[in-house]
Nucleic acid binder design. Structure first.
Lengths: 158, 158
DNA sequence: TTGTATTAAGAGTGCTTTATCTGAAATTAT
DNA sequence: ATAATTTCAGATAAAGCACTCTTAATACAA
């Protein structure tokens, strides 16, 4: 898998938050229910994002998490970096430590161009853009087709 | 990690075989020694490649494995596919099952173009090309700096 | 002040990947 | 034949990742 499961969950949650009409505190439980993810696990994942300064969290009733910056100023790469680290954007295809211009692996040249393309894509793709698309018809975010009614969702989350 | 460790070992071994002057049976022990990989583990990995029809194996003294086709007719994608499967070339960035044109995720459009680029790169990069580069000066293949003298290597491999 | 909702933190469990080991089967050489 | 060499197959062990659960800390509301 390209991204770890933790990372995918984090990205999904971040996009979900960016897709909301206003940036306000959302409970992790609500996000987990909406995205069909284990609440406890998502909690751990989002802790990474708050510690990285991408989210702000607030405990207690009506608490939750919110984007620390405007969604236009958080890139996909920011989120990936906070959870999986920046290895994907730096690593050698053949996993050779220290692979670089001075000491390249046979695939070095092809791979670096690919990698930088990937990095560019992820750095310029913002949560704002992704959130907008998530709001469009026929564009989905959750792991399984979920019911649309938010009230129902909260009930299901118990 | 982009590729699994098994896959990386398999690719490295395949490139090593392609880098040899002629395509003849090489013992897995020799490859493992050259690449600094656990012999037993590499054995398991290469079994995947033989079962996929990419390698031919021969038991007994002077046996070993050899490329089943000319190195120019085996692509990097072939090797990756045989070990890790073709998920990397097909998967949704956000890990959503069934993500496609009809039912896209928010990152679908950006990701598919990236993915097809990756697939194209891996399909057109042949073991012949990679083997050639592995033979060039200052291009390395093994996980750690290895001695250059092939005779010495054979001795070390016992 | 007490109760409740919520995130934070960390310990614990199970599964997958990675790695090791052993014996069997095949092939060659003596 | 017998011994030596090599891949094949399966069992086992160790490590890492995904996930769960429990307890603490924090904040609000009645």
């Amino acid at each position: 898998m390209m991204l770890s499961k933790s990372c995918i969950y984090g990205v999904q949650a971040a996009i979900y938050m960016a897709s909301l009409p206003r940036n306000e505190y959302v409970s992790i439980q609500q996000i987990a229910a909406k995205l069909n993810i284990s609440f406890h696990f998502l909690t751990k994942v989002l802790q990474n994002l708050t510690q990285a300064g991408l989210l702000i969290s607030y405990r207690g009733p009506n608490g939750g998490v919110a984007l620390a910056r405007p969604s236009s100023q958080i890139s996909l790469a920011d989120v990936i970096d906070a959870i999986d680290g920046s290895d994907i954007f730096k690593e050698c295809l053949l996993g050779l430590p220290g692979c670089g211009v001075a000491d390249p692996c046979p695939a070095h040249e092809n791979w670096t161009s690919m990698r930088s393309r990937l990095h560019h894509l992820c750095s310029t793709l913002t949560l704002e853009e992704l959130g907008k698309r998530a709001n469009q018809l026929n564009v989905r975010l959750a792991n399984s087709r979920a019911p649309i009614n938010p009230a129902k969702l909260l009930t299901e989350a118990r």
